[in-house]
């Protein structure tokens, strides 16, 4: 019994510490994130610079902290966009069924079949490089997974008698969908949101690594990975630091999602 909660606790502690770091970075970083120092390039980790410095002598810890803002911001907005549209579309498909369902879900299949990074590349090259378009692209990419999960919940629940009961009372379809059914199918959607968060962070890192996401001099973990790889033999810690944090946040949200799913399984 107790063992199962481990992933929930690990997830919560990782995400909570990263969130705390993000909040601190809003007010304080050890050094200004864009301050360069020619005398201290490629400094190894020390008391002054716990994670060393980069090729411009900037403090890596400060940039990691600042980069967490990007990660959380991108994750939050992308998941909100994807979740909002995904749930809406999935609810309509599942509740009304028939040709509409068929049409929507084939559209979702087409979106899923299209490689995410390729779509983001295309989107960004059409609408321009930058954090805003990156977020939109990532958000759109995550719509199908939300739509599928929501749809399956709605298909199951629309046959339940409480839904028939609401119809018999004259409740409108819109209200049945979002006021009656949605609260009952919310839990798998929350798990999907947690998983979606981690993949959004990963996508942002990948796009920034390719130079399509966050633009310099703003720090982003993916971007730092990109900038550091040239110097990987010279100062490996510069590469390792953002790598570890990307891994941590992805792991954290996956653990969290798993933990929530376990919790629900046991409640049922």
């Amino acid at each position: 019994m107790k063992r199962k909660r481990v992933s929930l606790y690990i997830g919560i502690s990782i995400i909570a510490s990263l969130l705390a770091m993000m909040v601190v970075s809003l007010f304080y970083t050890p050094y200004p994130v864009t301050e360069m120092n020619r005398d201290e390039r490629f400094a190894p980790p020390s008391a002054n610079h716990p994670l060393g410095t980069d090729n411009f002598g900037r403090d890596v810890l400060s940039r990691i902290m600042k980069g967490s803002q990007t990660a959380f911001f991108v994750g939050l907005i992308a998941v909100s966009v994807g979740g909002l549209f995904g749930v809406l579309v999935g609810a309509i498909a599942g509740y009304f069924g028939g040709m509409l369902d068929e049409f929507i879900m084939r559209l979702m299949d087409a979106m899923m079949a299209f490689p995410g990074i390729l779509f983001a590349l295309m989107f960004v090259s059409i609408f321009g490089v930058g954090i805003r378009n990156t977020i939109i692209a990532i958000g759109i990419m995550s719509i199908p997974s939300f739509a599928r999960i929501t749809r399956s919940g709605f298909i199951q629940h629309k046959e339940f008698e409480y839904v028939k009961n609401a119809r018999v009372k004259g409740v409108s379809n819109f209200r049945i969908m979002f006021s009656h059914i949605l609260p009952n199918v919310l839990s798998p959607i929350i798990v999907a949101a947690s998983m979606g968060f981690s993949s959004a962070v990963l996508s942002e890192a990948a796009l920034s690594y390719l130079g399509l996401g966050v633009q310099p001099p703003d720090p982003s973990w993916g971007r730092m990975l990109n900038e550091s790889q040239v110097f990987i033999t010279l100062s490996p810690w510069y590469t390792i630091a953002p790598g570890i944090f990307i891994t941590l946040i992805v792991l954290g949200f996956n653990f969290l999602g798993d933990g929530i799913a376990d919790l629900q399984d046991r409640q049922q």
């Binding site: 409480y162 009961n165 004259g170 009952n184």
Partner: peptide, 29 residues
Amino acid sequence: IQIIFQDTAGSLNPRKTVKWILSEPLRAQ
């Protein structure tokens, strides 16, 4: 015309209070 359902438990929304369940028909009307 109203109906009393076969599946007693299933005809009440599990996530809502009795008060909400009873006021919903009135709101719908």
